[in-house]
């Protein structure tokens, strides 16, 4: 009860937060691409479930983890294509098509699970922790930061990559201009449709991988609806981030930290009702959002693009 502030406990909480943040990072960064280009994809949850299942199934059949990730990415890409077809080409209301995609993805993943695996929960050997030499040996810090599995490291490496792509490359400029002012971008010869397709597909791939982290890089088994709302939180985190990759990082870590903290408090027997503890991450996210001001959404977010000349 009194050892909440011991070094082991504090580093334990941080370490867990780092691992818990992983799916939020993949899915959140993917959604960041969507939204920066002006597409709002609420179907992340459905894509994640399909990614989780396909990765699990491939690993279960072949034992090859990288094939599993690839499968999740391909399925994510495919789901992203469906989403972009509906929201870009058919110019559908994006929030609702996202809900439809979620229903479809969550349902189909359960259905496949029942048909292909007879609905039996089984486990596979997932990504094992990878200790980084030297750094991994530092007491506490090593265990917390440098003894995670490959997918965790990759998630954190993805943040600078996304920053560079979005803010330091021509492609990033195009993406942002399509999200801010598609008419102007179009006049300058940027293909709004192509960029949006690309971004929604990138978002799909990353969401697929986010799902895969559940089934082969964290829990290493598949269960229906196992992502349990992570996709919606990831979308919310993008708003929280102010459309900046490091904002996604901050949001994901904050949310995961509070979750890790409340679990630890329960284990240590600190007496708060568990349901109240479970609320904390959500309440804190809202409060933080109120105090972090001055965010501008991409101006054309969730507005389907129409060429004005027809």
């Amino acid at each position: 009860m009194n050892n909440l502030f011991s070094a082991a406990t504090i580093f334990g909480i941080i370490g867990m937060a780092i691992r818990l943040a992983m799916p939020y990072l993949y899915a959140g960064l993917g959604e960041l691409f969507n939204q920066t280009a002006g597409c709002f994809n609420l179907g992340v949850e459905g894509i994640m479930m399909m990614g989780a299942f396909s990765a699990f199934y491939v690993v279960y059949q072949t034992g090859n983890l990288f094939l599993g990730i690839a499968a999740a990415a391909v399925i994510g890409l495919f789901m992203g294509l469906i989403m972009s077809l509906i929201s870009v080409t058919f110019k559908a209301a994006q929030g609702i098509s996202g809900i439809g995609l979620t229903m479809f993805g969550v349902g189909l993943s359960s259905l496949l699970f029942k048909t292909l695996l007879q609905g039996t929960v089984q486990s596979v050997a997932g990504f094992a922790p990878l200790k980084i030499p030297v750094l991994g040996d530092i007491p506490f810090i090593g265990e917390t930061f440098f003894q995670n599995n490959l997918m965790v490291y990759l998630a954190y490496c993805l943040i600078p990559v996304c920053s560079v792509v979005l803010y330091k490359t021509t492609l990033g400029l195009k993406i942002r201009s399509v999200g801010q002012n598609p008419q102007a971008a179009d006049t300058l010869g940027v293909s709004v449709i192509k960029i949006r397709y690309l971004c929604v597909c990138i978002g799909g791939v990353l969401a697929g991988i986010a799902g895969a982290t559940f089934s082969i890089a964290n829990i290493n088994m598949f269960q229906e609806k196992m992502t349990n709302g992570t996709g919606y939180i990831a979308v919310a985190l993008v708003y929280f981030s102010g459309w900046k990759p490091k904002g996604v990082l901050f949001g994901a870590l904050l949310f995961s930290f509070v979750n890790a903290l409340q679990l630890r408090m329960q284990v240590l027997g600190i007496n708060i009702p568990s349901d109240v503890a479970m609320m904390l991450p959500y309440i804190l996210t809202i409060i933080t959002l109120v105090f972090v001001q001055g965010r501008d959404a991409p101006a054309a977010l969730s507005v389907p693009y129409e060429r004005s000349e027809n």
């Binding site: 469906i82 058919f90 110019k91 809900i99 439809g100 349902g107 259905l111």
Partner: peptide, 15 residues
């Protein structure tokens, strides 16, 4: 669930 999801997708697309 899957079927309802499809229905939703088609309805929005049909708009």
């Amino acid at each position: 669930d899957t079927l309802l999801g499809l229905v939703v997708l088609f309805v929005v697309a049909a708009k």
